[in-house]
Design a binder for these strands. Structure first.
Lengths: 394, 394
DNA sequence: CTTATTGTTAACTGACTTGCCAATCACCCG
DNA sequence: CGGGTGATTGGCAAGTCAGTTAACAATAAG
């Protein structure tokens, strides 16, 4: 909005962008609706829609009826105008969980294909693996290559978008400098990379409890570790080199500096949960099993309380720094804890933290990282379409 | 930029806004300069400038010379088009420091008047006190009332802009609900309120070490307490109810929950510094004197090291959550510590925090809160002017 | 058949651009 | 030292582009 100047061509570009933007967030709109939304006159709306349909970005999807006069045409973004692909990469877990899940959606967000596969990245190059996954997704959905304009990657690590390098990543091969541009080159698309927890927060924003919030801090608790994503009014805070939210390494203060190296990971990481479970006699061979068992067993109250206290330690620091309108507990462990854990954490926070924050548990049952990656990719595709219209006409 | 639609009137409004914006950040520009900056044609620039000068917002301040051709006219924003006032309110310190400092600047940021006074808010109503201070500022600068369009307040507390209420404030009378709208009503101007530390960060962004940074976290260390301001690309993070950065109350983890109620304030607050100084035999009756003495005395290395360790505890949490590109130490205590303290904190952080962040000390010698309040007020005034042009023409 | 609604066509307006021109100043060469 | 040369400034006129208002034909509900 500031410092934007230009001629009448800019005006048309803006108006077309605005109309497309309204049709993208997924609206089935008549000309009259668009007139209300954009405050443009009827002839202009007609012209804009004519151009957008000519460009193949918008189609007539139906006709209004039941009202006097001619049946108004209903317009919507053409689902097949562009597609976004998303791939979530993780280390092969102890449980043998799939190391790669991918999905492909059309412009409206409808999932057209989905893949899970186990790839051993010790033996496969990330680039070839990803190209293969995306090719398979395209084949499954029957989509031509040139229509997939963006591929979104989710990894358990921090992404430095300036250096285009993934840091702190465990999956072999993904930490190599220059990998991301190579992947983009090989795929022939834009490639976005983000932290898995950040992507889960994107999903939470669009589909979960974060929908209405001004912002939220999402604490991700999984068997492997913990992470934090910070949503401020819909945009994620990534930090200087993508390191924001890496609270697993947050050192904890020890009054007497005898044991210095305690960090939050030692407190609520998988190993810590397992140990805490053993101390309290909660059965389970994995952290997830332990929490699941404890949540179902009313006798495990002490375990839950202790775990909640530990979680509150980390959250208290986050709340003191950020004062988020909402705190979301997400990730497998948090979901396993469910309402029981939520209540305990809420109680612990009220005792520990000075500011009162609302706490909630994810409402996303599906793979939040993958969904978030789809949402992020879709956002990028839509943004690119809008920008292309804005620039092509300039 | 997104979802902005309109007719040619919008276009002109945008172009005028853009030109004014360029002239405001303080530029002395010729028509040719504006042509380059806005990519508009000569006749358009002429028309825009004609309108802006007619409105009294822009004036010819000189003529170019030394180049072939006619001497180009140099335009600049009219300093007297609008003024901003700023008032920093604090509790009466033990040292009897002035409880209110105020300043008034013109549209270019030049300070036209400055006041310091000691007001006992136990006996004076905040509203009448502020009205008086602003009136005195106007009188001193010889500025008509209607030209002062914005008054910026700085207080040691958190401001909930939604509820228009100041929380966690020590100065008597300022915590009352409805006070801020009343003040605005009485002054007949817009009134902005912000945390003093946030305002110091604004000053740091415009005049200090934060000028070039993508963002920074500013840790404010004063005799009264500590605070944190978070600058992300030039905008401050305020949190849900203005509580972001209230890290004084951040609880610290105690492994054995024997002494639970330790928070950061207990570690690096004024009382803590005083006590730490006594432990290490550093002379001084106030925290400031202690730090000042220690910074000058090479024998006080242990005190400085301990203090730095404690500061690093808080900063480590901040860095883990935010990963700021830069950390700024500010406030009286930090300035007293100077380079000595900076080196110690840098060292302590490298040992404690996983991510490496650059640390710096303020370069602002003057009253950072007041300057920041002026900057913030000026920003509001400029924004209002630009918006007014954008809307008046619509 | 009336009436409300849709969408098109025509005339007009506002704002920016290109192209042309006069005026002015620096610089250089005679 | 003075006049020519050339770059630069800023104004004016004509043309273009996009959006608005107004009038109108067409269509479906009641």
């Amino acid at each position: 909005m500031p410092r934007l100047a230009g001629s009448s061509k800019l005006l048309r570009a803006m108006n077309e962008s605005a109309a497309l933007a309204h049709l993208l967030e997924p609206g089935m709109l008549t000309r009259a609706d668009l007139r209300r939304l954009t405050a443009l006159s009827t002839p202009t709306i007609s012209e804009v829609l004519r151009r957008l349909t000519d460009a193949g970005l918008v189609t007539v999807v139906g006709h209004n009826s039941g009202r006097p006069g001619p049946n108004a045409e209903i317009y919507a973004a053409n689902p097949d105008a562009a597609y976004a692909a998303a791939v979530s990469v993780r280390d092969i877990g102890a449980s043998g969980a799939p190391s790669v899940v991918g999905a492909l959606c059309d412009l409206t967000g409808a999932v057209r294909a989905r893949i899970e596969s186990r790839i051993d990245f010790l033996r496969t190059d990330p680039k070839t693996a990803l190209v293969e996954v995306v090719a398979e997704l395209r084949a499954k959905a029957g989509v031509p290559a040139e229509r997939v304009s963006h591929v979104q990657l989710g990894v358990a690590g921090s992404y430095d978008s300036g250096a285009e390098t993934i840091h702190h990543v465990d999956v072999p091969g993904f930490g190599r400098a220059g990998l991301v541009p190579e992947i983009a080159e090989a795929l022939g698309t834009h490639v976005g990379v983000d932290n898995d927890v950040n992507l889960a927060a994107v999903a939470e924003r669009r589909r979960g409890v974060g929908r209405q919030a001004d912002g939220f801090a999402l604490l991700w608790l999984s068997q492997e570790g913990l992470g934090l994503a910070i949503d401020i009014g819909g945009t994620l805070l990534r930090g200087a080199r993508g390191g924001a939210g890496e609270i697993g390494y947050m050192p904890l203060y020890a009054p007497d500096s005898t044991h210095r190296k305690v960090d939050l990971q030692d407190l609520v990481g998988g190993a810590a949960i397992l140990a805490l479970g053993q101390d309290h006699g909660v059965a389970g061979r994995t952290p997830l099993e332990v929490v699941l068992a404890a949540a179902a067993d009313p006798g495990a109250g002490e375990f839950i309380a202790q775990l909640a206290d530990r979680i509150a330690v980390g959250l208290a620091a986050v709340i003191a720094v950020l004062d988020p309108p909402l705190v979301v507990l997400a990730g497998p462990v948090a979901q396993a804890g469910g309402q029981t854990l939520l209540d305990a954490v809420t109680g612990a926070l009220h005792r520990a933290a000075p500011l009162e924050s609302t706490v909630a548990v994810t409402t996303i049952d599906d793979d939040a990282v993958l969904l978030g990656a789809l949402d992020a990719g879709l956002g990028a595709v839509r943004g690119a379409l809008i920008a292309a219209i804005r620039d092509n006409q300039a």
